[in-house]
Nucleic acid binder design. Structure first.
Lengths: 116, 116
DNA sequence: TCAATACATCGACCGTTGTCAATCTATTGG
DNA sequence: CCAATAGATTGACAACGGTCGATGTATTGA
């Protein structure tokens, strides 16, 4: 679970060819699969969605726990997965941790899927 | 694992709003997560890639087993997952089963991710 | 009718993952 | 310095998912 194990989505788009262009090699498939696994969870999709549509496009954990209906540790866990995968950025201000969308992260992975 | 449990990707794009538009409801997140889970596996990504770049944009199981380095039952399993999720179509001709990309399936899910 | 081939299904094994309660670590206010 | 609050981390548990060998089912060709 160390940071180096996961390659940020934005970096992947710089190293791999889209799905339909040519047969993907094993390494590229592994990387893209990891990025997609981070997305492929209902709680995490809703988290991204909540952050994106929140005021100032950022939100702290306390804003997210209640609408999701999950415990605080679980929400923190999902946020960590999204940060490690490069979809979210985390900024600590005082007691709070504010999360915001990494620019272009979603469009990057989207581009790899659609083939451009 | 019944067919009715899984909603085809193409249908999802007709029923759900993209991630960043507004907070996703639980049901929509569940559906999109299921579609993404079907994609989020290295073997399945390579299968889609192999089928797409194969001659006539279709391939039978025997074409796919060797380049993937997985057993025939495992390949069949992954292909079933992709068909159930709506990414692949299956046509049986004689002894062989030919798989081809469902038109617009990848672009549909890609659109839901990128926000348009 | 029989053997061979292509593919699907089943059952089992095992590593992965989502979840929570409990605990730990700041940081702020008094 | 102490209490309260926000959040991360840990440990445990159950559910899920990828894999394979063995077996089942069509279909073709002889």
């Amino acid at each position: 679970m160390s940071p180096t194990e996961v390659l940020s989505v934005t970096d992947i788009s710089a190293c791999c060819t889209p799905i339909t262009r040519e047969p993907m090699d094993a390494a590229g498939a592994e990387l893209l699969a990891k990025s997609l696994k981070a997305l492929a969870d209902p709680a995490r999709l809703r988290l991204l969605s909540l952050v994106a549509s929140h005021e100032d496009s950022e939100a702290c954990v306390c804003d997210l726990t209640e609408p999701l209906g999950l415990s605080q540790p679980t929400v923190s866990h999902h946020l960590k997965v999204l940060v490690d995968a490069g979809y979210l950025e985390r900024e600590k201000r005082g007691t709070w941790a504010y999360y915001s969308l990494t620019p272009d992260a979603l469009t990057s992975v989207s581009g790899l899927i659609s083939g451009l």
